[in-house]
Design a protein around this nucleic acid. Structure first.
Lengths: 181, 181, 181, 181
DNA sequence: TATGAATGAGGCTTCATTCAT
DNA sequence: AATGAATGAAGCCTCATTCAT
């Protein structure tokens, strides 16, 4: 299948990837509005006009990037949750996935990327509630809270020891903040 | 005639307010980058150049806006927390403040505005931990989680019944998600 | 005559002088186009609008400044020439006047100011030719040459010893550049 | 087809020239500060933004223009001086070069352009002094004087008979203004 | 008459997108 | 399909001048 690809197709595929990678980098560095199409192609071996052979607009790359993120990240981010037998396992799966992703070299995991997994998380929580894993809480609120806590901890470098960070985060959401009487 | 005549000052004060309000509106509608200075003054009875009699740049209005938000929102947002005798009171104070603010007519309370209160919340949580109100959790992570949950619930209209929403949110963080055995 | 001037007149006279002096300074520092009316009034105890009570436009101050220069400088610049009995005396009078002016503290003597004396110099040279002081040279060309040489020497600091500079300059124009056979 | 096709290059070269010529014209007409970039491109078949494909700023065109002038004018202006065997030949070479240039149709020779040759002239005069061609005068002062005289004469139309003008100018500087006793 | 804020035309420059080669 | 120059709309900001107090 690979060998059978005409050279042309290969080049096109590669160029598209060039642009996407460059765009991800540039958007991360300067933000969407701050980045220029020229910035993107400059981070590429391609020429200015070529950009428009692959994407119809700057906005278009962003969409492609988001889709890419969703496809690549969401499965990894939701790993282990469906099989969780307890709330603890579920939370543990979630936090360790986030911290592992954050610790990765390419480390492009932005808050925005995390949000890509928001709906998955909501759904999984609701399923968890149905399965009796969780108390019947507001799933969206919990999902938002989990994501925010994970992002906050990761931003502050807690992810350097993922195991410990995961344990702390799990406890917080598992038992709440109230000291035992 | 003199005492009654901070006339010019009044006008200046008003113009400044015109610009700030217009900017808040325009930024909310189009985002900072999407908004133009012209958009702002067009939402004002003033002339183009007048903008620069009050602010040195677009960036400058944003700063002023943020400062304004912080000054106006933070006290109200942190109300009742310092006096809380239990975790429940603390959480209750927090969530009802957010939902009350969200329910207000001018309702400009954006996620960004909430973040203005992030550091206050962190500090109050840490104080709470010291006073034995909370288990020794990661204050920043908890603060982020609280803010995110509150925002998420408010966004989804839960704030229409603030009392109920507050109760649900408080429970979530007070006892965690684990069902009692 | 001075004592009899109503206070009002005095103030007006002084304000006009304020503006003129500030304008001279600012124009010298940034050039006419580079200078702003605001720059000028900022170098003054006066307010922005007041400028237009004294001058009708930026251009108008420049004219006034030129006129002032002409009136103040031209007599001093042309001193001693009419009475010169020889070419040497004439040239000597010219160069020492320029160098003296250049050496003065306020030292605002710009090339442009020197040009104010151009026509006077032309006329005096022509009179000198008629009186047999000079060979029948092209008066305007000579005037331009004298002014340029003086300015060049002054710019390069030769004016620090005015006597010597004058002597050198006089010789140059008196006998020309050709070495004696 | 390839060798014959620096087509794109040709266009670029031509566009650059368009802009430079337009800029020279516009600067001459309105002065540097009075000229706008829009004035320049309007004197061109090109579009507004294209200006910035060739020059980074208005200031940048000026520099290019000055460089161009220097490269084009200086050699012609200094022609014949290095080989001069006498002061007369030297001066004669200088003045006829200036008057010839001034008489040319394109006649863009501005005073500013002449100044481009100032340093060359200084150097040549110093060399001339070393070679015993001239009395040991102040080279810079003499250069300034020569340039000013030439410009003045040319401005006043003396250049219509270059030979005569040259002769007069040469005499002035060769022997000075003092009548023989 | 002094004040200083208001005015608004217009300057320089950037940038997404198109187009001839 | 790739190239990279051309396009021109639009952005931010400055500044001479006017005007209400």
């Amino acid at each position: 299948m690979d060998a059978a690809l005409p050279r042309r197709q290969q080049v096109k595929r590669q160029n598209r990837r060039f642009i996407l990678e460059a765009a991800r980098k540039v958007f991360a560095e300067r933000g969407y509005d701050g980045a220029t199409v020229r910035d993107i192609i400059n981070a590429t071996p391609l020429a200015a006009g070529t950009f428009y052979n692959y994407f119809t607009s700057k906005e278009d790359v962003r969409r492609a990037l988001d889709a890419q993120t969703a496809e690549a990240l969401r499965p990894r981010l939701s790993e282990g949750r469906k099989e969780a037998a307890t709330a603890e396992e579920f939370l543990s799966a979630f936090f360790s996935a986030v911290f592992a992703l954050k610790a990765e070299p390419g480390g492009v995991l932005e808050k925005a990327d995390l949000q890509a997994g928001f709906e998955d998380l909501c759904a999984d929580i609701e399923a968890g509630i149905a399965r009796g894993l969780f108390l019947p809480v507001d799933a969206a609120a919990l999902a938002a809270a989990l994501l925010a806590a994970a992002d906050q901890m990761a931003e502050r470098g807690k992810a350097s020891d993922p195991a410990e960070a995961t344990a702390a985060a799990v406890l917080l959401f598992l038992r709440g903040v109230q000291p035992p009487i």
